[in-house]
C-alpha cells in the first residue's frame, strides 16, 4: 500500500565562520584608461555564481555595463586573499569588499566629475555621469576614466572586509557567535510504499531568506540544487567503509539523484535585508540544502508513523523499520 505524508524542515544557519575565527575577504577594483574595469579577488566560483554577482555589484555601483568588467580570480600571483568558498560566505563577505572597493574608486571619479561638470548632484548611470538638476551636464564614464588617469589619480582601490565576531562565553554560551544568520524552511510531500519501503518524493516547496537576491535566477538554482543534494542525503547517499577502506568509490555505488529522482521543486525567495550585507544580501548555499532531509523524514513519519533516525532512508533501512514496527 502507498501512504502519503507531508513534513516540514526548518533551519537557521550562521553566516561565515563565527566564534572569533578570522573571516576576511579582499577585492581590488581598477579602472583602465579606456573605461573598462579589472576586478581582482581570490574568491572561487565553483558554480554557485559568485563571479556573476560580483560583476553585478561593481556594475551597479559604477553605473556601467556588466560586460565591461574583466574578473580575475583565485590566482595567488595576481589576486588578494578572499578566504575560502565555504560557510556560504562569499556573497556576504567578499560582496561587501566588492562594494567598498567600488565606492572608494567612485569617490575619486566623483571629484573629477564635479570639477569638470561644475555640479555636485551627480548620478552614475548607463555608462554616463550627469547632474540630476542639470541633466544636460554630463560626461561618459569612458571619458571620465581617461580624465582620472590624465590627472594621475589613484585608479585602483583595494578593500578589505572583516566579519570576525567576538565569540561567546564558554560557560553560558551567550555572546557574539555569528555576524548574521540565514533562515530557510521546506515542505516535502512523499508517498511511501509500505511493502518495499520505497519513498517517492512528490514535491518540495523551499523558501530561503537570502536578505536580498542579487541574482534571482542564481538563487533559484542554488535552492533547486540544494534540494536535490538534500534529497540524495535523505534517501540514497551513503559512504560505506570496511576496515578503513572505502566501499563506495564511484558514482555507481554512491548514489546521487539523477533527473529521474528529482521531484518538482517550488523555490521561494524571501528577502528580509540584513544591514551588514551588501544591498542587504546574505548567503544561500548551505541554507538551501539543510532543511530538505528533515522535511522528508518528517513526511515519512507523517505517512507511516515510522521515525527514521539514521540516514539514508533507503529501501533496505526503511523496509527494516517498517517490519520492526509491525512486530511491536
Amino acid at each position: 500500500m502507498k501512504k502519503r505524508g507531508i513534513g516540514i524542515g526548518c533551519m537557521y544557519y550562521g553566516m561565515g565562520y563565527g566564534f572569533s575565527r578570522p573571516d576576511v575577504s579582499a577585492a581590488e577594483v581598477e579602472i583602465c584608461e579606456d573605461g573598462s574595469i579589472i576586478v581582482r579577488s581570490g574568491e572561487v566560483d565553483y558554480g554557485q555564481g559568485s563571479d556573476t554577482i560580483f560583476c553585478q555589484m561593481v556594475a551597479e555601483e559604477l553605473g556601467i555595463r556588466y560586460d565591461t568588467i574583466q574578473l580575475i580570480t583565485a590566482d595567488t600571483f595576481a589576486t588578494p586573499n578572499a578566504g575560502p568558498t565555504s560557510a556560504s560566505r562569499l556573497t556576504y563577505v567578499t560582496g561587501n569588499a566588492m562594494v567598498k572597493a567600488s565606492r572608494a574608486i567612485k569617490k575619486t571619479l566623483q571629484s573629477v566629475a564635479e570639477e569638470i561638470l561644475g555640479e555636485r548632484d551627480l548620478l552614475f548611470l548607463d555608462e554616463e555621469i550627469f547632474s540630476e538638476s542639470h541633466p544636460e551636464r554630463r560626461i561618459s564614464f569612458r571619458q571620465l576614466a581617461k580624465e582620472g588617469h590624465l590627472r594621475g589619480l589613484p585608479m585602483v582601490e583595494t578593500a578589505w572586509h572583516d566579519i570576525t565576531t567576538k565569540d561567546v562565553n564558554p560557560e553560558t554560551g551567550q555572546g557574539d557567535a555569528y555576524s548574521t544568520y540565514a533562515y530557510a524552511a521546506q515542505l516535502a510531500e512523499v508517498a511511501v510504499d509500505t511493502e518495499t519501503g520505497e519513498v517517492e518524493v512528490l514535491r518540495i516547496v523551499a523558501a530561503a531568506d537570502v536578505g536580498k537576491a542579487i541574482n534571482p535566477s542564481n538563487v533559484e538554482g542554488q535552492i533547486e540544487g540544494g534540494v536535490a543534494m538534500g534529497l540524495g542525503y535523505a534517501l540514497t547517499e551513503e559512504i560505506k567503509e570496511e576496515g578503513g577502506y572505502l566501499k563506495t568509490r564511484n558514482l555507481g555505488e554512491y548514489m546521487i539523484p539523477t533527473s529521474m529522482d528529482v521531484p518538482p521543486i517550488d523555490p521561494h525567495i524571501v528577502e528580509v535585508p540584513v544591514s551588514s550585507g551588501p544591498y542587504g544580501a546574505k548567503g544561500v548555499g548551505e541554507p538551501a540544502l539543510i532543511p530538505t532531509a528533515p522535511a522528508i523524514l518528517n513526511a515519512i513519519a507523517n505517512a507511516i508513523g515510522v521515525r527514521v533516525t539514521e540516514l539514508p532512508a533507503n529501501l533496505e533501512n526503511l523496509h527494516r523499520l517498517i517490519r520492526e514496527k509491525e512486530r511491536d
Binding site: G221, E224, V227, P257, S259, M260, V262
Partner: peptide
C-alpha cells in the same frame, strides 16, 4: 521523456530543474 533523455547525465549543481 526529457527526464529519461538526460538520465545518463549526472548534475550535482542544478537539481536539473532549469536544465529541463
Amino acid at each position: 521523456e526529457i527526464k529519461r533523455g538526460i538520465s545518463g547525465n549526472l548534475c550535482r549543481c542544478t537539481g536539473f530543474v532549469k536544465i529541463i
